[in-house]
């Protein structure tokens, strides 16, 4: 925080809970160009959330919380996957992100 500077709007924080083998919420809609902080919380083992096309990858330890700030640069639908192998349903653990104008 820089004192005397004009207060800037904090990026919106979006909490996502990861548990074997799903994300909650399973779908998100964001605006292109609007910065957000994704807060990933694990309620069981280590997980991750990666949107390959958007260059976003956040990993979280067992029972922990971790965050990443990013600004969606393009519109469209993007499917994020768990990026830390977490067991038998790992490959089906997805979150769909809609980026709109």
């Amino acid at each position: 925080m820089v004192y005397g500077a004009a207060p800037e709007a904090q990026p919106r924080r979006i909490e996502i809970t990861a548990k074997r083998f799903s994300f909650d919420p399973g779908e998100l809609t964001l605006k292109r160009g609007e910065p957000v902080v994704l807060v990933l919380k694990s309620v069981d083992v280590a997980h991750g959330l990666r949107f390959r096309e958007l260059g976003v990858d956040v990993k979280v330890g067992k029972g922990a919380e971790s965050e990443v700030e990013f600004t969606p640069g393009k519109t469209g639908d993007f499917v994020g996957h768990c990026s830390v192998f977490c067991g038998g349903g790992h490959g089906s653990m997805k979150l769909t992100l809609h980026v709109v104008e």
Binding site: H81, G91, K94
Partner: peptide, 8 residues
């Protein structure tokens, strides 16, 4: 299928 994602 399902254990690993298509990308993986």
């Amino acid at each position: 299928k399902g254990t690993l994602s298509d990308e993986e």
